[in-house]
Computed example of a mutant assay.
Amino acid sequence: MKTVARDTKIVERLALCSIPVSIGVMGLKMFAWWVTGSVALLSDGLESFVNVVAALLAYFIIRYAQRPADHDHQFGHHKAEYISAVVEGVLIVVAALMIIQEAWGALFAPKLPDAPVLGLAINALAAVINAVWATMLIRAGKAQRSPALTADGHHIMSDVVTSAGVFVGLILAVFTGYAILDPLLAILVAFNILWQGYKVISHSLGGLMDKALEPEEEAAVRETITAHSQGALGVHDLKSRRAGAAAFIDFHLVVPAGMSVGDAHDICDRLEDAIKAVIPGATLAIHVEPEGERAHGQKVKVEGTPS
């Protein structure tokens, strides 16, 4: 497996473009609500208002996270993106609660929407725009390892689910004459949004808690060590953590007791270059120890390393 180095210009440009897109979609949805008076469409519009706030937050956090390391933040500012993603998850939950509040009141005084065809057409247009944009953000966020961009994409995709549910519900309400379907559907959609918010928050908290590399990434690191550790006897205590686009990897490298510092250094340089080619943005710390040393009384040898 080989990951791709982040293109900071792509990440920043997409984050910036999210702002006018979210504002335009919110305008369409609020216009659809104004035309119809539907509480479900109002709820959809309220979620889009949260999207605007989230897009603004994501843009400024992404710019901050891409700052180079400084004296106060010597490992960089990468984790700021996780903060943005957590806040965005909270905003998703807030949007769901706002929807439930609006729909709850309408349950006791339901009414069929006015001009439903025009309102649904406007809302459908907004949903299509959101679906295309959310797909772009999620793909780019994963490819560029941007938690903030990915969270923004999932947030917008939850909005698409909302719009689809509202569309179906309003059609049923109009054709059956059961006006209560409008607020009932809004509540059901709100619970789906709550679930999306939970997933965004839990994933982002994993990053803030120094979650290790993904299993396939760690496997790639081990394979790379095996292929480029000629001259060494083995490694142990391999540890890693992911911080947005950055990865931090450290391990102990066991070498023959009589090996010179220069030769051990050459092996470390070779390993660093090979691992950085597989995990772009990685920062490595390799502790060299002579044969006979044992971490915690036991050396754990990476399978396939020289004996």
Rank of each mutant, 00 (worst) to 15 (best):
V4D: 12
E12T: 15
C17R: 11
G27L: 15
G27S: 14
L28S: 14
K29I: 05
T36D: 10
A40R: 09
L41S: 07
D44Y: 04
S48I: 06
V50L: 15
V52R: 01
V53D: 05
A58Q: 03
Y59P: 05
F60G: 10
F60C: 08
Y64M: 13
A65E: 03
Q66P: 00
D72I: 03
D72F: 13
Q74F: 00
Q74M: 06
G76K: 04
H77C: 01
A85M: 05
V86H: 02
V87R: 00
V87K: 01
G89H: 10
V90D: 00
V90Q: 02
V93M: 15
Q101R: 06
G105S: 07
L107D: 11
F108A: 09
F108H: 06
A109F: 00
K111G: 14
K111V: 11
L112N: 00
D114Y: 08
D114H: 13
N123F: 12
A124F: 15
A126P: 12
V128H: 13
N130V: 07
N130R: 12
T135V: 07
T135D: 01
L137S: 01
A143S: 15
A143I: 10
Q144R: 09
S146C: 05
L149N: 02
D159Y: 11
D159G: 15
V160C: 13
T162K: 05
S163H: 08
S163Y: 08
A164M: 12
V166L: 07
F167V: 06
G169M: 04
L172T: 02
L172Y: 03
A173W: 03
F175G: 00
Y178R: 09
D182M: 04
L185M: 14
I187Y: 10
A190D: 04
A190K: 02
K199H: 14
V200C: 02
G206P: 00
M209D: 03
M209K: 03
D210S: 04
L213G: 04
E214P: 01
A220T: 06
R222V: 09
E223P: 01
T224S: 08
I225C: 11
I225L: 14
S229T: 07
L233I: 07
G234S: 08
H236G: 04
K239S: 06
S240E: 05
S240F: 08
S240I: 09
S240V: 08
R241T: 08
A243G: 07
F248T: 05
V254D: 01
M259E: 10
V261A: 14
V261G: 00
D263P: 02
D263W: 03
D266V: 13
D269Q: 05
R270C: 05
A274E: 02
V278E: 05
A282T: 09
T283W: 09
H287D: 11
V288E: 10
R294M: 11
A295F: 13
H296E: 13
K299R: 07
E303Y: 08
E303G: 07
P306M: 01
S307K: 11
S307A: 13
